[in-house]
Amino acid sequence: MSLFDPTTIGTNALDQFRDWDFSFTGIWEYLVDLGAYHVSEQGVWGLIGIVVLILAILIAYPPTRYLGSQLSSNLIQSFFSIINLLVLGTGLVIAAGASRLGQGAVRNFGRSLVDWARKRK
């Protein structure tokens, strides 16, 4: 339940804005409602836009610049790691169909993923 409805236009909106609770919880509730609206309207693109906006704000504000740069660096590395795993997995599946050696490579790849998951726990 949002205290300030941004879709209302007119004097009602001004009255709502004047009566709005400017505490941290009111602002947080408004931002969460705004984010949920964009995610529900645009889907994944809305979520990507929210993440990019948050990272841009963190990088622009000097006290949080290091945190923002680390988060953006980790997101980029995670994205390329996923792409790398997809390409590697696709290549191994093609190799498995082509040769006996490829079947061993697929088996070793599966074992390495299991070992990686065990190390993460």
Rank of each mutant, 00 (worst) to 15 (best):
L3I: 04
V51R: 13
I94T: 05
V51Q: 11
L75Y: 10
L47D: 10
V51N: 03
G102F: 06
H38S: 03
G91T: 01
D15I: 15
S112H: 03
F4K: 00
L88S: 09
A105P: 00
S73P: 00
P63S: 08
Q103M: 13
F24L: 13
G35T: 08
I83K: 07
V87R: 06
V114Y: 02
S2K: 12
L85D: 15
L34A: 11
Q103K: 15
F17N: 03
A95Q: 10
S72D: 00
I76K: 15
A60R: 10
N84Y: 07
G89C: 02
L75H: 08
P62Y: 03
F79Y: 15
A56L: 11
I59Y: 02
G68L: 09
F109H: 08
T25G: 02
I48L: 14
S78G: 13
I83M: 15
A95K: 12
Q42L: 14
A96R: 01
N84C: 03
D33E: 14
F79T: 01
L14M: 09
L86K: 04
K121T: 05
A96K: 02
V114G: 00
K121D: 03
W20Q: 06
L55C: 08
N108A: 15
W45I: 14
A95N: 09
T11N: 12
I48F: 13
V51C: 06
H38L: 13
F4E: 01
F4W: 04
S69D: 00
L75Q: 05
A36P: 04
A60L: 10
I27G: 00
L58R: 04
G26K: 07
N108D: 14
F109G: 04
W45P: 00
P62A: 05
N108V: 15
I57W: 06
L3M: 11
L86G: 11
Q16A: 15
V93L: 14
R118Q: 07
F17Q: 12
S78F: 04
E29V: 05
S2C: 02
D115C: 06
S23V: 02
V39W: 11
R111K: 02
R111S: 08
I59A: 05
S23I: 02
G49C: 00
D21G: 00
F17V: 04
F22E: 14
V51M: 08
D5I: 01
L14K: 05
V87G: 01
Y37K: 08
T25Y: 11
G89D: 15
G68R: 02
F17W: 08
V39C: 07
R107S: 12
F17K: 10
I48N: 10
R120A: 14
T25A: 14
F4A: 01
L92R: 05
V114L: 14
T8I: 15
F80P: 01
L75K: 09
L47N: 07
G46R: 03
L58T: 03
W116R: 09
L71K: 08
G104T: 08
I82C: 06
D5T: 04
L31F: 14
G49R: 05
L14V: 08
G102I: 03
A105Q: 12
Q16N: 03
L75W: 04
D15Y: 12
V87Y: 10
A56F: 12
G46H: 02
A105D: 05
S112T: 14
V93H: 02
W20C: 08
G26L: 10
G91A: 13
S40I: 05
S81W: 06
L14P: 05
I59R: 10
T7R: 13
S69M: 15
